[in-house]
Amino acid sequence: MSGDTNSKLVLRDFSVFHGKDHSLRRVSMDVKTNRILGVIGPAGSGKTTFLRALNRLNDLTPEIRTEGTALLDGDDIYGGSYDVVRLRKRVGMLFALPVALPMSIYDNVLYGPRLSGVRDRRRLSEVVERSLTAAFLWDEVKDRLQMSGLRLSGGQQQRLCLARVLAMEELEVILLDEPCSGLDPISTAKIEDALTILKDRYTIILVTNNTKQAARVADETAFFLMGEMVEMGPTGTVFTVPADPRTGEYITGKFG
């Protein structure tokens, strides 16, 4: 039933229903530890639904329900007694549009750690520096940490959001929902660089509408179409010899 031991996330016949719509259809996959999984597909293919289901942000939308199993380290995250709050601390999310909370850069980064009860000043400062450095933002903001996060540029805000996710001490999986869709090429490059370093510590799932981005950074790639996972495999294979003709058509730009 479950995948091999180095699988972080295992989905079996996992479906998401949005009211009467079947938005994600019986997806089964193994996401390997310390790898980057790229998820590609046209708009409306269920990529975002898939991503939001993995840290149960879909819980906030009452008409959404799920079927099948989704295991994180072997535990069913939709199990009755599963602690959602803990899940979200282990599985972080970066949204398509950068959302800096209306507070200082410093407080933005520490939002997660403070929720977990970290109070020690020195430790908090260390977390800020470590997270901002890992998100390639430290040098740009180290002298103005008390400035409101809203005053950063879009690209800086997205890196601030990444730092905010990285600051969570229990973090194991990072979900990214088209994190570069609104960013300039330089900011995009910085985020991609950060990801390739971060995969040594975390498991990363990157949803992107930019197939080239998946080709650049993903170890494995999954192709979604109309709520179904068409295929998944090593990035090189999916991009050069796709198993399904629709994958090839999408990658070469025939639709989507």
Binding site: K89, F95, G112
Partner: peptide
């Protein structure tokens, strides 16, 4: 903005923590 709530939840806040913070 609803985005603030989503961010807060995604960082592991409960609803009450989100309301307060």
């Amino acid at each position: 903005p609803n985005a603030y709530r989503e961010v807060s939840f995604s960082l592991g806040a409960t609803r009450w923590e989100t309301v307060l913070k």
